[in-house]
């Protein structure tokens, strides 16, 4: 299909009467799509494929890129991570659990809150552009800015929030409060991004559908369930997948707000991978950890795409 299109395109574009030679057209046409794909292919191979394969190779060694000896350990790093009592398994699965807790707590909020905001911002009212900008604004900030900001707002003893509440809630030093802080901060920070995606999706839903619904006597609520949500399904799937992946890759918030405290309770998988790989220069184990995390995330992504597709089919 793509080939025939490409072949005919230059022929059509050729100005009246002047037919280029057949061979020239075919040759250029065959290569054209691949040439367009080439820049991305180079980046993909250079920054995804090669590092990906190389990372797997690294995970099969006791790897420190600075030491001359990088002994081959086969699947030893993986076996260790699955062996209770080994040096890293406890830390790793605690970090995976922390990542899981954060994802489960943050994803529903990051699906629902931005949708509500997008629905509001999709209505016509004075100052709409201003509010759209306001809700998106935090997303522009770097995680370092947000982290330091919230560290002072939420400090248990000298923070603003507890000053007004009049009680020293341990927002950054004890669970479950630390999870509330991390999730709340993340929702505030990234809500704008999901809201903008929803907003684009909402504007794609044909107005005629709403008109038809209203003619049929549908209430606002009916419109939402039967027109808005189905219309948003592809967008919803995208937002869900991207949000799960972003939450599972959480690093900066814990690193800056709680430092993993209490103990290592809020240390996420990526934070542990970074500490192990770059702090301790144990790239072999760190790579193995990343691969386990990647496999889990792939499984979750496949699962939620399947689930949403099945609902679409029914």
């Amino acid at each position: 299909m793509a080939v025939t299109d490409a072949r005919s395109a230059p022929a059509r574009a050729a100005p009246g009467g002047r037919e280029p030679s057949r061979g020239g057209v075919r040759r250029g046409g065959l290569l054209t799509p691949y040439l367009f794909l080439l820049p991305y292919l180079v980046l993909f191979v250079g920054f995804v494929l090669i590092p990906g394969v190389f990372g797997f190779w690294v995970s099969l060694h006791d790897y420190n890129y600075l030491l001359p000896g990088k002994p081959w350990v086969g699947f030893g790093n993986y076996v260790d991570l699955f062996t209770p009592g080994s040096r890293d398994s406890g830390d790793f699965w605690r970090a995976m659990a922390a990542t899981g807790i954060f994802t489960v707590l943050s994803v529903p909020l990051l699906l629902v809150c931005p949708l509500a905001v997008a629905l509001l911002l999709n209505r016509t009212f004075p100052g709409r552009s201003f509010f759209r900008a306001v809700f998106f604004a935090p997303y522009v900030l770097g995680v370092a800015v947000v982290g330091v900001l919230f560290r002072f707002i939420l400090d248990p003893n000298i923070g603003l929030v507890n000053y007004y509440l009049g009680h020293p809630f341990p927002w950054t030093t004890a669970v479950p409060w630390a999870w509330v802080s991390l999730v709340g901060m993340t929702v505030w920070w990234t809500l704008g991004f999901n809201a903008i995606i929803y907003l684009a999706g909402l504007q794609d839903i044909p107005v005629e559908l709403y008109e038809a619904a209203r003619v049929d006597g549908a209430s606002r609520w009916d419109e939402f369930w039967n027109v808005t949500l189905p219309g948003l399904r592809p967008v919803l799937m995208f937002v869900l997948t991207v949000t799960i992946l972003a939450s599972a890759n959480m690093f900066g918030q814990s690193y800056l707000l709680t430092h993993g405290a209490p103990g290592t309770t809020t240390r996420t998988a990526i934070m542990l991978v970074a500490q192990t790989g770059f702090g301790s220069n144990r790239q072999g184990v760190a790579a193995a950890m990343s691969y386990i995390l990647a496999v889990v995330l792939m499984a979750v992504s496949v699962l939620n795409i399947r689930l949403l597709q099945r609902r679409e089919g029914s």
Partner: peptide, 13 residues
Amino acid sequence: SPANVGQDADYLA
């Protein structure tokens, strides 16, 4: 000392 002293809070206090 209060419980749950945050990073640098001791010094800021």
